[in-house]
């Protein structure tokens, strides 16, 4: 089982982030009020934000170790990232979006290989008929699945999902949540997601890490958080308030 560890201290603008989180293949849900540092944490792990002090490890790979002067650039971290709003490339088709990473891969896939691999992942997510569509013609749920396919096609060691279901309406959210739970289980590797919805935590069987002011204020299973919520926000989140 892959374990991971992230100990990150940094400043972004006037905001200070200082936390340590870790886990295994069980998904971790980052929760917390707006501005508590959830997205910043994901970006720091992805390597998009400079870490002033700390270390990040996924499995055997040390991605960041400030004391030892290690900083692996984003493109070599093997981390999949699905940002809020999905970040699909508007000038490319669905197929081209998913192939994007394969073209950069050191494995130097041939054109036909790329097409096949991308097509396979798209079919797994039920998006095969969308392959030649422009991404701005997709519904929110379709965009979400394409973004997931684009991240999964490279077989990342760690998957980072920033509010993957927030942009969807209630009925679609339920369907996509189901797809996401299935995919993450099949993925079988660590995943960290930011969410505002306790149903995501339940569906994914995730461990919860609650942030506030750039720090971890509580972590544990949903049950543990229910028994003694450390803040009003957490009580509200787990459905006690």
């Amino acid at each position: 089982m892959t374990t991971w560890h992230a100990s990150v201290a940094t400043h972004v603008g006037g905001f200070a982030l200082d936390l340590t989180i870790d886990g295994d293949s069980t998904p971790v849900a980052l929760i917390g009020p707006n501005g508590s540092g959830k997205t910043t944490t994901l970006r720091a792990i992805a390597g998009a934000i400079a870490v002033e002090r700390g270390s990040i490890r996924v499995g055997e790979h040390v991605l960041e170790h400030t004391d030892r002067g290690i900083h692996v650039p984003i493109e070599h971290r093997r981390v999949g990232y699905v940002p809020q709003g999905y970040g699909l490339f508007p000038h490319l088709t669905v197929q081209e979006n998913v192939e994007f990473g394969l073209a950069n891969s050191p494995d130097r896939y041939r054109v036909e290989d790329r097409r096949q691999r991308a097509g396979a992942v798209l079919s797994e997510l039920g998006c095969a008929p969308l392959a030649e569509r422009r991404v701005d013609r997709l519904s929110g749920g379709e965009q979400q699945r394409v973004a997931l396919a684009r991240a999964l096609v490279l077989d990342p060691d760690l998957l980072l999902l920033d509010e993957p279901l927030a942009a969807l309406d209630a009925t679609r959210r339920r369907a996509v949540r189901h797809v996401l739970a299935e995919r993450l289980e099949a993925f079988g590797r660590p995943a960290i997601l930011v969410t505002h919805d306790v149903r995501d935590v339940i569906a994914l069987g995730a461990t919860v890490v609650a942030l506030d002011g750039g720090q971890v204020i509580q972590k544990g299973s949903l049950e543990e958080l229910r028994q003694s919520p450390a803040s009003d926000f957490i009580a509200e989140f787990v459905g006690l308030a």
Partner: peptide, 25 residues
Amino acid sequence: PDMLIVARTLGASPVVAFVRVALPI
């Protein structure tokens, strides 16, 4: 900015991300 971060996580160097994502958009 998120699009460029995604491009980087998909293996693109800063220059490749600029040429293949920022310039076309």
